[in-house]
Amino acid sequence: MPGAASSHGLIWMILRRIGVALVLALVVSFLVYAATTVLPGDVAAAVLGRNATPEAVAALREQLGLGDPFAQRYLAWLGALVRGDLGTSLAGTRMPVSELIATPVRNTAVLAGATLLLLVPLALFVGILSGVRQGRALDRAAAGVSLTLTAVPEFVVGALLVLALAVYVPVLPAVSLVSGDVNPLSVPEFLVLPVLTLIIAGAAYLIRIVRISTIEAMATDYVEAARLAGVPERRIVTRYAVRNSLAPTIQAISATAQWLLGGIFVVEVLFAYPGVGNALVTAVQVRDVPVIQAIAMLLALAFILINLVADIVTILVDPRLRTAA
């Protein structure tokens, strides 16, 4: 039965992708651990600083297990990580890392979520429209703007927006300052500038991918055939073009989400937004190793997961890929 064979192949493909993702996660965990613990000087003393008594240094070395061989330390750390134990922060309060990063994680999720929620529909709309009306005014304008903006780093876009909307026409706060446990959604005015910055910096890329995919889809034999059969253009766009550009678009959305994970640091720092990016930069400055490890792993896992989901969804929606399997 070809159907059964095909669905079998499909499951096998998905399982293989999951396997690859797991191996990747393992390798990444090794790299993160190695990079953060092979420090010049003594981590324990670096962390404790001026208040370090020999006993305190010894205790911290113990906590970090610095006396043990590297492989043993790594495995112990990995074991704890798998059990969800992220360790204890080395900074003043010595809080559990999971507790310490809970609020930043939520804040970053809110920022990234709000950005994607606005960015994806916007980019799809503009991208498809540009693709369908290739070469016309809208297309040319969108192309020009997006070509310009992809080149500009997020902190420059953000700085320009601050200048425009917080300094010259002061309608918005220049920094986010969602503090303590306040949900950033409850003070949306602080979200505007960071989200706007990320949309402007990220939309250009997505628009261009969607546009190209649309142009390619509009040039396929299906579309030609449909045109010849007299199917109305509007219907061709919704039925064929959009559907056929779905797979590359999903990949592009996933790439945008991944880009967000990288771009969000800079934007969070620029606007003093209390998310994981800010927390990570601070942790790097104070060398709070467990926090660095936790956030780096978290972001890398999110990165891998986004990729995995996008791959699986692409396999499911793209009939060509399915038959190819």
């Binding site: 990747l24 790299l31 953060t36 420090l39 990288g262 930069v281 942790a283 660095i292 972001l299």
Partner: peptide
């Protein structure tokens, strides 16, 4: 290459900076 694609470039350099200063 696969491993590297699983890691935002900026994050990678930040983690390196945690070690190297």
């Amino acid at each position: 290459n696969d491993v590297l694609l699983a890691f935002p470039a900026l994050l990678l350099v930040l983690v390196l900076a945690a070690g190297l200063g």
